[in-house]
Design a protein around this nucleic acid. Sequence first.
DNA 1: CATCAGAAACTGCAATAGCAGATAGCATAT
DNA 2: ATATGCTATCTGCTATTGCAGTTTCTGATG
Lengths: 229, 229
Amino acid sequence: MLTAPTGLTPLAAEDILSLAERAYRRLRDAIADGSLPAGERISERSLAQSLGISAQPVREALRRLEAEGMVVTLPRRGTLVAEFGPRQLAEMGLIRVALEGTTASLAARHATAGDITELLALLRAMRPLLRANDIVALAEANERFHGHIDGLAGNAFLQRSLDALRAYDHFARLRALRSTPQEPRRAWREHAAILSAIRRRDPGQAEARMRAHVRRSLEASGILDALNT
Amino acid sequence: MLTAPTGLTPLAAEDILSLAERAYRRLRDAIADGSLPAGERISERSLAQSLGISAQPVREALRRLEAEGMVVTLPRRGTLVAEFGPRQLAEMGLIRVALEGTTASLAARHATAGDITELLALLRAMRPLLRANDIVALAEANERFHGHIDGLAGNAFLQRSLDALRAYDHFARLRALRSTPQEPRRAWREHAAILSAIRRRDPGQAEARMRAHVRRSLEASGILDALNT
DNA sequence: CATCAGAAACTGCAATAGCAGATAGCATAT
DNA sequence: ATATGCTATCTGCTATTGCAGTTTCTGATG
């Protein structure tokens, strides 16, 4: 019997993370970056074999992916990779618009002076990256900025949801940053505007600006086009 | 394949639930209605024994709850029930405000005439329940109304998120409906207003009214008080 | 009495084996 | 040629067993 046609290599025994966690991340990223195409049949057993582990952790990873909608399993028949393309990215994008808006609003309510100082530092740290046009580092800095605001919101469920979303549209955002050369600077200015609203303790404006920012960046990368059919 | 002219519909795969699924629901509801207090230590083995099944399905259920933040497990030390009280309900409520708003906006864009007819029927079906003051049936009808709008939005991730949320604040909503006698009628009027915005194909107003509705009902039941400390 | 090894009893995690439903292939019968 | 029945082999699902840390109890020792 041949191994499963997934190009997944066995897991390295280096990390302290559980095998299930590692299998989950591996599969999640493979789906997110498109290397696991939709419709691909996944067998717990053969996948376990190609990862060099037993079927249990694999199964756990699959159930987790199923809960997130990235995989659908027909009882006693098989598990398939769900569709994950422009349409799904757009759907996730709309959720991010709503949730990050709430996050900004809450951050404007709860942020301390120290928090705002940290956000300013994050913003300032992006400037040299802008000059150098280091896309990968910029994407990380962006995610750090947004993630920090998420933390200030003080809503554990909100933060959890956004973390999960970010894992999936990470690759799409990278592509978007590369495709439109003026996007990084524009995003930076919008970040600064959001931060000034937070600093002013204006939840309404913080939310409005955040929503506009996320939505505009989605439009700039053409992601929302997938919904205007 | 033979055409089989009988009007039989395919069997639903949901009829037989896996042990893991059943264990998950049991635990989830126990946490949601407070019968599993925060800090309670849960052992995979002993819980499995008291449920009459093996440890595997229980473990799956626990990992799922962990992904939802309702349980926290310290590797090789134990699993405990996370805090789930007014504060958490309020946090979930704010997420619902944002997501249901998006849902209403999308529904206003995508709803067909038939969809609107169905929503009107759902609304009309609530009227006798209002007169009879049948709280349990009203809560179900409310969830059906909101759930139907979620479906119209055509965003699978949005729908999934809201379904998960609803499972947790279901009990709180029941309590809220009971505590304020004028709430059911007020909710009904707001539902009607939302529907009219959807009918008018006005996404902005549908979203605004939905957000106001969810937020106000949260305030009426005192749930949001937990955040104004 | 206090302290501290060390065994015993937990814990979550992982591997293995086996069950039952579902499918595909093939032989047989009509 | 088509339909039927059987079998081998897939699938996900569950049970059992054992592993490796962690905690807790215990009892000998100071």
